[in-house]
């Protein structure tokens, strides 16, 4: 049980750091935004493992759901500006 939890935590951690690196260093803006959403989604699974279901729900609904769409609304309005 405990070994499984630790393995899952390490897996989530590696995936989160990979997604965060893509979000910060990647060339394409839409992929960066989606990676930031992915970091939030993986973080919400991590919160569930850390016995915080309330926080996991909030992070999944707000951090990875609504925030990603806010970015895409603005990204759609500033076409041409994302390569500066």
């Amino acid at each position: 049980m405990s070994a499984l939890f630790i393995a899952l935590t390490i897996l989530l951690t590696v995936a989160m750091i990979g997604a965060a690196l893509v979000a910060v260093l990647g060339k394409s803006m839409p992929i960066a935004i989606l990676s930031a959403g992915l970091v939030s989604l993986l973080a919400s699974v991590l919160f569930l493992l850390l016995a915080a279901p309330d926080v996991a729900m909030t992070e999944a609904a707000i951090g990875s759901g609504l925030t990603t769409f806010l970015f895409f609304f603005i990204l759609g309005r500033v076409r041409g500006g994302e390569h500066d």
Partner: peptide
């Protein structure tokens, strides 16, 4: 249960 006003509000906004 887990959840509450902030989560429910975010789901309504979704």
């Amino acid at each position: 249960t887990p959840g509450g006003g902030f989560q429910g509000g975010a789901i309504i906004a979704s």
